[in-house]
């Protein structure tokens, strides 16, 4: 193969730019406070792990993570079930109102979450759902489901009709067809949805702050937002907090990065 310096250089520069903030975050987190004040860019003289120790042992970070995990599992799971059922019906059945349901559901993708805060807050106060996992899971599931339906309908429609016809011949019910024929063929888009939706829920700050006010229910993002505060100048400690908060998704990504990328690619349009 010909040596191609220019493309290599371009890719390397792009990769460096993509990587620098993460590197800065990690390197700074390992620096002593005094050293950072004196030198903001250099390599640490000695690694200081105390900031990580403080985050891990002096804050309820594991509680926050557990809360985030509960919300991610609950809302992504709920949304998948709801979206699969609906998308299958919309893609593969004839019924009155089908197009209307799809249009409305898709249009809801355009609702900026911020506009829902007032009415939902009033509703939730009346129903006693503020600071409950169930209440928050419903909101997140609602927010991520329109995109899921949209993506799955597109995918289910692209499946060959013969497969489904064959299952019908065998006397399978719709639910059985969905479970045994359609879903096994749809692992890639399902993976896409799990990834995209999990990122959305894990990373959300707005809803988390407003609907999970109880300290025992705080999510990672809400926790570190308070943690980071606005008036702090202990940057290395802040960076350690950010690094710990980013760690679960980073580790998941690096471990399963092939699946991540493949899943996203599968969900991508033609």
């Amino acid at each position: 193969m010909r040596l191609r310096p220019l493309p290599h250089l371009a890719l390397s520069i792009a990769s460096a730019i993509a990587l620098i903030p993460t590197v800065f975050m990690l390197v700074t987190a390992l620096k002593a406070q005094e050293e950072y004040q004196a030198d903001k860019t250099g390599w640490p003289d000695a690694f200081v792990f105390d900031h990580f120790r403080q985050i891990l042992f002096d804050t309820p970070i594991f509680l926050w993570m557990a809360n985030s995990l509960i919300l991610v599992a609950g809302s992504v799971g709920l949304s998948l079930v709801v979206a699969c059922l609906a998308a299958y019906a919309i893609a593969r059945m004839e019924f009155r109102g089908r197009d209307a349901i799809l249009t409305v559901s898709t249009a809801l993708m355009a609702v900026p979450p911020v506009v829902l805060i007032v009415p939902l807050f009033v509703l939730y106060t009346r129903l006693g759902l503020i600071s409950t996992y169930g209440g928050a899971i419903l909101i997140y599931a609602g927010l991520i489901t329109p995109f899921s339906v949209y993506l799955l309908v597109t995918f289910f429609r692209s499946l060959p009709q013969e497969l489904i016809d064959a299952a019908v011949m065998d006397g399978a019910t719709h639910l059985q067809i969905l479970m045994r024929v359609v879903l096994p063929l749809s692992l890639a888009p399902l993976l896409t949805l799990v990834i995209v939706n999990a990122l959305f829920v894990w990373n959300d700050l707005l809803m988390a702050v407003i609907f999970l006010q109880d300290d025992a229910k705080k999510t990672v993002m809400a926790g570190i937002a308070v943690f980071q505060g606005r008036y702090n100048n202990q940057i290395p400690l802040t960076m350690a907090g950010m690094a710990v908060a980013a760690a679960p998704m980073l580790i998941l990504y690096l471990t399963f990065q092939r699946h991540f990328v493949r899943g996203l690619m599968a969900g991508a349009v033609k």
Binding site: A18, P21, L199, A246, Y253, Q257
Partner: peptide
């Protein structure tokens, strides 16, 4: 190159 999208 996809890393930035993973970070919140």
């Amino acid at each position: 190159l996809f890393l930035p999208y993973i970070l919140a």
